[in-house]
């Protein structure tokens, strides 16, 4: 049962991820991304990480993607707008970057293969996540919030040139 659900969600995630890339219209890409996020939440639930799954849906699928869709509709981008010609050099940057990412993922999987059973037992309760965020991972947590604050301030500066 769990295996069947895993393959269902995994197939949905991979299919949606591919669809994000191949769709010509940017709105359809955004909608595929939502499907991807929701199926990722399904995978989180199968790993006993209920809290993470729900937060993933609330923050990404429910808030950030709504913003994406809103902006796409507001700008009313025409179909098949091909900006790829101006960004041709990105292709050559993309291939090594993609290979590097693949290498990183494979390396992580290789190392994680040994104690995969232990990973599944990890408690995913809100208490456990809060405790580890404010003890073991306090510095990364604070640095991340600082990063988000900087991004927010940058957005305000861009939006209002004369403050």
């Amino acid at each position: 049962m769990i295996e069947a659900l895993f393959f269902l969600f995994a197939a949905m995630a991979v299919g949606a991820a591919i669809n994000v890339l191949v769709q010509k219209h940017v709105l359809y890409s955004a909608l595929s991304l939502i499907v991807l996020l929701v199926s990722m939440s399904g995978l989180f639930i199968l790993l006993n990480a209920d809290f993470l799954a729900v937060i993933n849906v609330i923050v990404y699928a429910g808030a950030i993607m709504v913003l994406f869709v809103f902006v796409i509709m507001l700008l009313n981008l025409p179909e098949d707008e091909d900006g790829a010609d101006r960004m041709r050099w990105l292709k050559f940057l993309g291939i090594p970057m993609g290979l590097f990412l693949l290498f990183m993922i494979l390396a992580t999987l290789w190392n994680a293969g040994a104690d995969a059973g232990v990973q599944a037992q990890m408690p995913g309760s809100p208490e456990a996540i809060g405790r580890s965020l404010f003890t073991d991972y306090l510095l990364p947590f604070e640095v991340t919030s600082l990063l988000i604050l900087i991004a927010l301030m940058g957005a305000v500066v861009f939006a209002k040139k004369e403050l």
Binding site: I34, D50, F51, V54, I55, A61, G62, V66, P126
Partner: peptide
């Protein structure tokens, strides 16, 4: 009953906007 039941309600509630958005589009 889930131990994150309230968040589940908010999560699915936040998804319900897509019905409106996609229908309108």
């Amino acid at each position: 009953d889930l131990n994150v039941a309230l968040l589940v309600v908010f999560a699915v509630g936040s998804l319900s906007v897509y019905g409106i958005v996609i229908g309108g589009w």
